[in-house]
Design a protein around this nucleic acid. Structure first.
Length: 420
RNA sequence: GGCGCAUUCGUCUAGUGGCCUAGGACACCGCCCUCUCACGGCGGCGGCACGGGUUCGAAUCCCGUAUGCGCCUCCA
């Protein structure tokens, strides 16, 4: 039987990164097995539904490149089917009415178990399972009723979901058996926690896909990082592109213990991906990011600065602060210029008529002046850097000067001298 | 409280009875490179939760304890 899995988010807001990790495992498994990955919106709790959520979820998945098969479906569309099944169960005395709601009669003795792909055999005593509400008194089916029913109707072969659903599983298995169907294979993947071991939330940093995107992470880097949270192909490999991830992913190698989200490692990995991009591609990503975040910066100039920042920043969002001096005026902090007066004057003199005005000639001219003044390179160049870029940290100075051009360079040097 | 799940360096992990004086990566520290910051290179610090078994031999198997997490909603 071909593999068919699904992602079943509830439309209550932006897509949480923990849900994405679970979705990724589903997607990787489906693609690895040549099966299908479906998207189902679990919207039976209309009171919590957020209007734009469905669009947000799809946009986030698309940005990450997690494509789903077929149209997305809504749980609410099958509300009548669910109700019919509930009535049938009542007719068969497998369920009963309770203050307007319909409850399922769980077995009282023995236990309900399954062979979890990630955890092995899990066995829950039936006496600890409550008779669960299938249909609310207002007629809407509950999640624990609708979800397993839809899994059956959709022909889902493997339910890959978070470990917080472990205790729901015996309930759902009993419902599936009650309607005479065969339960799917279950795989409960570990949760993703924050640095304190608690559920990943806002206070830990970015948690929604939209936030990671805004913070300048590359989707392929985020995907690579997420895949490694609870799974590893071996003990060595860290960087894997989408193709390799799909090729090597094994559900049976997913770890049963929960993992903490390490933002520092994500930053490192994102930097690795940014450096691996061609300068043209990096420029393209930067232009897109800038556009999405309200910067109306010249695309051609962005393309020319991209090579200068490629090894310096690890997220797209660092670009404005790091390379903004190419796109607008600077206000050097006079405190960072101290003692640089003579060198600034010397630089102005050296660059005024330098030909050609290129990084190599600029460098040798400035080094010559530094030597004349008896200054160490660091002492000599730092005031120039501050004057030109407005910061003590910047891309390579000589390349930056070349790109900035003679006119702008000289005027910034003059402005800095005037600041004394 | 009940039930369940989990437990290898600070973090992500490799490890399925001898290849482990436990390997890799991030972070951290030091050195090198160097116009700043990075990148890169080299080196260092650092771990099998605890206690019992089983076995010639256990990070690996079993039991218990501890700790963490999840669920116990007419939420999903």
């Amino acid at each position: 039987m071909p593999v068919r899995v699904r992602m079943a988010p509830s439309p209550t807001g932006l897509l949480h990164i923990g849900n994405v990790r679970t979705a990724l495992f589903n997607w990787l498994y489906a693609r690895h097995e040549g099966g299908e990955f479906r998207l189902r919106i679990e919207n039976t709790d209309t009171s919590r539904e957020v209007a734009e959520a469905v669009d947000h979820i799809q946009e986030s998945l698309r940005w990450l490149g997690l494509d789903w098969d077929g149209p997305h479906t809504f749980q609410l569309d099958r509300i009548d089917d669910c109700r019919r099944v509930a009535e049938q169960l009542v007719a068969e005395a497998k369920a009963y009415e309770d203050e307007g709601a319909i409850r399922f009669r769980m077995p009282d003795e023995g236990s309900t178990g399954w062979d979890d792909v990630v955890r092995g055999r899990v066995e829950i005593p039936n006496e600890t399972i409550e008779d669960l509400v299938l249909v609310r008194s207002d007629g809407r089916p509950t999640y624990n009723f609708a979800s397993p029913l839809e899994d059956v109707w959709d022909g889902i072969t493997h339910v890959i979901r978070g470990e917080d659903h472990i205790s729901n599983t015996p309930k759902q298995i009993n419902i599936i058996r009650a309607i005479g169907a065969e339960p799917p294979v279950y795989a409960h993947v570990p949760n993703v926690a924050g640095a304190d071991g608690k559920k990943l939330s806002k206070r830990h940093g970015a948690v929604t896909v939209a936030e990671f995107r805004r913070d300048g992470y590359l989707p392929e880097a985020l995907l690579n990082f997420l895949a490694l949270l609870g799974w590893a192909p071996d003990g060595e490999t860290t960087i894997m592109d989408r193709e390799e991830l799909v090729r090597r992913f094994e559900l049976t190698r997913v770890s049963p213990s929960s993992a903490q989200f390490d933002y520092a490692k994500l930053d490192w990995l994102n930097g690795m991906y940014m450096r691996a991009l061609s300068p043209q591609e990096l420029a393209h990503r930067l232009v897109l990011w800038l556009g999405e975040n309200g910067y109306d910066w010249d695309a051609e100039l962005v393309a020319r600065t991209a090579p200068l920042v490629q090894e310096k920043i690890s997220r797209l969002a660092e670009f404005p602060a790091f390379a903004g001096f190419f796109f607008g005026e600077v206000e050097p902090d006079a405190g960072n210029l101290d003692g640089g007066g003579p060198m600034l004057a010397a630089a102005e003199e050296a660059l005024a008529s330098l030909e050609p005005f290129e990084a190599a000639t600029i460098e040798s001219a400035l080094r010559g002046k530094a030597e004349e003044l008896g200054l160490k390179p660091r002492q000599a160049f730092q005031p120039i850097r501050v004057a030109i870029t407005g910061s003590k940290v910047s891309p390579g100075l000589f390349e930056s000067i070349e790109l900035l051009g003679r006119e702008t360079t000289l005027s910034r040097l003059r402005a800095a001298r005037a600041a004394f």
